[in-house]
Structure formats: C-alpha cells, structure tokens
C-alpha cells in the first residue's frame, strides 16, 4: 500500500510538471496548447540526441537542450502565434493541433518511432526508502525536479520584475502594452518556460520508462487533466490536480490492469467536467446568458 502511494507520488511529480506547462501557456499566452504532448516528446528527443546519440558532456547536454527548447519557443511565437493575434481563440487551438501534427511528423522522420533507452548520468538504482517501500533513483530525480520548478516559478512570478510583468500581461495584454511592457517578449518567455517544463517532464518520464514518441506524447496530452482539475489557469491548482491524477492512474492500474493507464486521466477529466468544470481553483467561467 505504501509502495503504491510512493509510486503515485513519483507519477504525480511528472504530471505536475506537464500540468504546469499547460497552465502557464493558458494563463500567460491565452492558448490551450494541444501540441503539449508533441512538444514534450520533442524536448525529450532533443535531449536524447545530445546525450545518447552524440554523447556530449552532461553540462553541454543540459545547456544545449535548454537553449534549443527556448529557441523553439521563440520561433513558435514569432512564426505562428504572433501572426494569429486578434483571431478568435478557436483559431489558436486549431493552430496548436496543426502544430502537433507537424511536430509528430518531424519527430518520426528524424528519430523514428521505436522506443529507445537514454544514456544515464548515474546508474538507475532502486532506492529503499523504508522496509519494503522503494522507488527508483530517477523517480526521486523527478520529484526533485518538480519541486525545483514549482519553487522557482513561485519565486519568479512573485519577486522578479519580469515575472510581475508576465502576470500583468497575462491579466490584460492591452493595458500591459499601454504600460510599455513588451508583450511579445512576454509571450516568447511564456513559450520558453512552458516548453522547458515540458521537456523536463518528458526527460524524467523517459528515464523512468523508455523514450518513445507515442508514450511521451500520450503523457503530455494526459497532462491536461491535472491542469483542468486545478482550474486551467491556476499554477497552485496543478499540485493537487497532479496528486489526484497520480493516485487515479496508480490505483486504476492496480485495480483494472495496465491498460487503465491510458484512460484513467481522461475519465477524471469527464468527471470533473460533469461536476465542477471550472476545476478546484479556477474562476467560474460558465457563460452568462
């Protein structure tokens, strides 16, 4: 039982990172990014290219992945979403679907579809926490990564001037522009941070399982569940959301077998839409008529 809970917690950490990527883009850039799954996989494959295929030193791998992902974020905004400014939300969502399709094709073309094992910085041992309760070293890395990202995000949005300007632009982009804030750069930063969080989630997940486009892509899409449970725009809300999804998936697999992994999160989404569509922390968005 305790082992299961630890497993759920490790899984929740990954979901928290994915959910963070969904919420950040929804909130800062106003985009429901259905390409999150593909971008998660892309981040992990770029990392794998540097780490495994090219065998670069680890600091170079980390900085190189970060730089590539940030550059991709900038390109995504300047090439696509800046050009869609002023179009209805509908167009933005459809564009993310188109992006998802194109990224999947690119990834499959470059790296194929078979599963890979990534080069490990340290040997992935099993860590015994208590008597009979254990997890893998990479499970703990995932937890630490999630904690670091959330703590850093909290500090960034709370205390840094750039973070405060991002919140300002997220609340009212026209007023932000009138107040001299470079809204386009805020959006670029939104993409860069979201894609970085997504890449970290993808890498951690790939270390805990294997690296395959299909697996990481599906995880990224399921990451909308913790975001929705938390209210789609609340970064705080992602944490309980991720815990709920982590528990649902872990116990779903325990009760109904391995294939439940694919649907547990989606069932939670339908239940949330039925009983509390605005999520646990979201503002009520019901259409007033």
């Amino acid at each position: 039982m305790l082992s299961l809970l630890v497993g759920a917690l490790v899984l929740s950490a990954i979901y928290a990172l994915v959910g963070f990527a969904w919420v950040l883009l929804r909130r800062t850039n106003g985009i429901l990014n259905l390409a999150t799954g593909a971008q998660l996989a892309l981040g992990a494959f770029i990392f794998n290219q540097y780490a495994t295929s090219w065998g670069l030193p680890w600091p170079v791998v980390v900085l190189g992945t970060l730089a590539t992902v940030v550059a991709l974020g900038a390109v995504t905004h300047w090439l696509i979403f800046r050009k869609l400014a002023g179009q209805p939300e509908f167009a933005l969502v459809v564009a993310t679907l188109g992006l998802a399709s194109a990224l999947k094709g690119l990834s499959s073309l470059t790296w194929g579809t078979e599963a890979r094992v990534m080069r490990e910085p340290v040997e992935g041992r099993v860590v015994e926490l208590l008597d009979g309760v254990s997890t893998t070293l990479y499970g703990i890395f995932g937890l630490v990564a999630a904690l670091v990202v959330f703590a850093a995000a909290h500090a960034f949005f709370r205390y840094s001037t750039t973070g405060i300007r991002m919140r300002a632009a997220a609340e009212n982009s026209v007023l932000a522009s009138q107040g001299g804030i470079a809204v386009d750069w805020v959006y670029v930063l939104g993409w860069a941070i979201a894609l970085t969080a997504a890449a970290i989630a993808g890498i951690m997940y790939a270390y805990q399982t294997t690296l395959s486009f299909h697996g990481v892509d599906a995880l990224g899409l399921r990451g909308i569940a913790p975001a929705l449970v938390g209210g789609l725009t609340s970064i705080k809300g992602v944490i309980p959301g991720a815990l709920i999804i982590g528990l649902a998936e872990t116990f779903g697999v325990k009760l109904f077998g391995g294939s439940a992994q694919d649907v547990a999160a989606w069932v939670v989404i339908l239940v949330v839409l039925l009983i509390r569509p605005q999520g646990l922390f979201g503002e009520k968005q019901v259409e007033r008529v």
Binding site: I164, R167, E171, N172, V174, L175, S177, Q178, G180
Partner: peptide, 30 residues
C-alpha cells in the same frame, strides 16, 4: 501602444487602468 510609450505618449485608459490581480506595489514595478 508600446512604441508610443517609447515616444513619450502614455495613455491612462477609461476602464481597466490597473492590473487588478497585482498588488499596488507590483503595479508600479510592472
């Protein structure tokens, strides 16, 4: 608008003149 701010033209709009979810201090820091 942002370019106009660079040219020294600043507008205090009719509605939504402040960022409501930011504190007063954060409004100034923004």
């Amino acid at each position: 608008p942002r370019t106009m701010v660079g040219h020294g033209v600043v507008l205090v709009p009719e509605e939504n003149k402040v960022f409501r979810t930011l504190t007063v201090g954060e409004n100034l820091r923004a």
